[in-house]
């Protein structure tokens, strides 16, 4: 592997995505992508006593499910990169504490899934691993409890607010296989354009997505049309519109092949999710379910997956800080 341009890593021994798995909650199961997910839960507790325990179970079962689908023995998994949104990433660590897989906990807010894919690819290309798992989870109820208000509170969600996806996505990367391959990884810079409204994450993260998109295209010398699809993680309806317009001002027309996981996962009109989906699982499940299916069936041959994250917590919001955004991109080709 080598660094090209300003901040892009180009892989030489291309890591293959062997298989993916996804588990989603009931609300996601009512959405337009339901048929692509491996398992749809009937209730958000999944037999557990708390939202946090439920989220851990979702992550754990997703990881076990991807191992099973890949038919690799569990002992051949060298490392697991996983992360989530709960304080100190307890969903991932508690979910995987009995797995015996060496665990590398990562945090990139909602960009965690792609951060994992990128880091896993570096391990594989650098011969530090043969097989790694990358996983990420989020849960609407645990996220509301931690970041916003108790679920029983009778408040109105603003129109720009997004709905945290309940679920988990996991992918196994391997040094040998027939594709799809991860060809490039562009880790993003932290970009803060001063947005303070925690109910408008799409607007807070769109400038970071723009920065990573342009840097990736400049570093690789590609045009947006090189990709069959450019997909962002969870900008939602508001952030998607903003990114299209911002990209246009910089001379990039992405309107025809660009979409967002948060826009794809819910039906805005039927499901009353306002500005669309968000959370680590938004990008994680849409990639592991829908996009991986599109790559396997060769409907998409080249995609650029840009996961976006808002690097804030409830304390920083209360202290009046603005919301720094980040976006990591991986280029995936068959």
């Amino acid at each position: 592997m080598e660094k090209i341009g300003k901040q892009t890593i180009k892989f030489t021994n291309l890591p293959t995505i062997v298989d993916t798995a996804s588990i989603v909650g009931p609300k996601e199961a009512e959405g337009p992508l339901a048929k692509y997910f491996d398992k749809c839960l009937e209730d958000e507790f999944w037999g557990e006593k708390s939202w946090e325990k439920a989220e851990s179970k979702i992550l754990k079962e997703t990881v076990y499910s991807v191992i099973k689908k890949s038919t690799l023995p569990i002992s051949s998994i060298d490392y697991c990169f996983a992360g989530d949104l709960l304080n100190q990433c307890i969903s991932s660590s508690f979910g995987l504490r009995d797995s015996n897989i060496p665990f590398i906990g990562i945090f990139g807010a909602c960009s965690t899934f792609v951060e994992g894919l990128g880091l896993g690819s570096i391990f594989i290309d650098g011969n530090a691993a043969n097989n790694v798992i990358c996983a990420a989870s989020s849960h609407f109820c645990s996220a509301e409890k931690q970041f916003r208000f108790p679920l029983e509170l009778g408040n109105q969600r603003p129109q720009s607010s997004q709905w945290t996806v309940t679920g988990a996505g996991a992918a196994i990367l391997s040094s040998s296989g027939t594709g799809p391959f991860i060809t490039h990884f562009t880790p993003g810079r932290i970009i803060d354009m001063g947005i303070k409204d925690a109910n408008n994450m799409g607007a807070a993260m769109a400038p970071a997505a723009l920065d990573t998109l342009i840097t990736h295209l400049t570093d690789t010398g590609r045009k947006p049309s090189y990709y069959d699809a450019i997909i962002t993680g969870d900008l939602g309806h508001v952030g998607k519109e903003i990114l299209i317009e911002l990209a246009k001002t910089k001379g990039y027309n992405i309107k025809s092949n660009y979409n967002d996981c948060g826009v794809l996962i819910f039906d805005k009109n039927k499901q009353d999710t306002h500005a669309g989906g968000s959370g680590c699982a938004c990008c994680g499940t849409v990639f592991s379910g829908y996009l991986f299916n599109m790559l396997q069936s060769k409907k998409y041959k080249k995609i650029l997956l840009i996961a976006t994250g808002a690097l804030m917590n409830s304390t920083s919001t209360q202290q009046g800080e603005s919301i720094p955004g980040i976006a990591h991109a991986v280029s995936i080709e068959i």
């Binding site: 109105q156 129109q159 947005i195 408008n200 508001v238 317009e245 246009k248």
Partner: peptide, 27 residues
């Protein structure tokens, strides 16, 4: 549209782009 460079301009742009609450119906 001109490229947006300052946080102030971005905030103004975001305010314009963000959907408003249906205030009459809510009231």
């Amino acid at each position: 549209m001109q490229p947006i460079e300052t946080t102030k301009k971005y905030q103004e742009y975001v305010d314009k782009k963000s959907p408003n609450s249906p205030i009459l119906k809510n009231c």
